[in-house]
Design a protein around this nucleic acid. Structure first.
Lengths: 152, 152
DNA sequence: CTCCAAAAATTGAAACTTCAACTAACCTAG
DNA sequence: CTAGGTTAGTTGAAGTTTCAATTTTTGGAG
């Protein structure tokens, strides 16, 4: 309500349309691959990947949700399904009774092993194969800057 | 299954993490604004915007779905809600009995007018305000290239 | 002309996400 | 030490999206 909002000019509009199309379509592309290779969604896959790289392959639900770019409620539902499938296990934190810790199980590690190679291949095929190092750095930097704006 | 998949190196991983975080979080940011200003989701907003710029503010469901980056089934459900809310109207195509055409109504135009200024402001705040013209062009070009890979 | 495959759209059910309400644990001011 | 506010997490219900099945229409092959 504050500023007179100048509309996007032609170049800005073209840029925005291309960018937003990537943003809206990439998730489905990623989803398809992991669903094919491992029978889980990309969000579920993220949970497993983040846990894999965590200390003791264990992490608080809140932190996990943040790193997976999802809400705590969403993670809580998903964690139940993953736990039922034997891919993670949950137990309450010894030092803070409010927290729940999630840990990767052997089953989870196995499933990751099945999905990860295809995932890396897809990420390369969609993004990195076609970019020079400089372009890649540029993409990273632009992403960081946009991200900073989103967070604020 | 074909190639030995070389894992992402550190720079690639950093880039990917930033990029994917933008991709996963931007939709929520956009959603929040239009939901606030107009009480509809970003996808619903897209439908109205695409119709606004179409010939006679009218378009086939299939084409609309494609330009809104969603499935036809998703659009069909959403279109019913939008029609119930008086924002669009649907009628079958005179020249091809299989097709349905969707058109923007006065109500839809009014709602767009309410949401659009805030949307433009947000897009600027999140993306364009912080970029030079060259950086913007770079973002557009990288997006086009990635998009081409996703489509294939 | 008739048959049949393909294209367009809708529908209901299942799966998933969001939202709001709730429980439990922690912390700290008094 | 305890009352009240805050933080972490879960849950059920409501809303949305996907998936598979179905309907209707079109266009072409024979």
């Amino acid at each position: 309500m504050s500023d007179a909002a100048p509309w996007l000019d032609d170049e800005e509009m073209t840029t925005w349309l291309a960018f937003v199309r990537v943003v809206m379509r990439l998730p489905n592309a990623l989803d398809g691959q992991v669903r094919q290779d491992a029978g889980i969604s990309y969000f579920e896959y993220s949970v497993l990947v983040v846990l894999e790289h965590a200390e003791d392959q264990t992490m608080r639900m809140s932190d996990l949700a943040f790193l997976c770019n999802g809400s705590l409620s969403r993670l809580s539902h998903v964690a139940r399904r993953l736990e039922d499938g034997g891919l993670i296990r949950r137990f309450s934190c010894p030092t803070d009774g409010r927290s729940t810790l999630a840990a990767l199980t052997d089953g989870g590690r196995e499933l990751l092993a099945k999905a990860a190679p295809g995932h890396v291949r897809l990420v390369r095929a969609l993004v990195f194969d076609d970019l020079t190092r400089d372009e890649m750095r540029q993409l990273g930097e632009l992403s960081e800057r946009i991200l900073a704006r989103i967070q604020a």
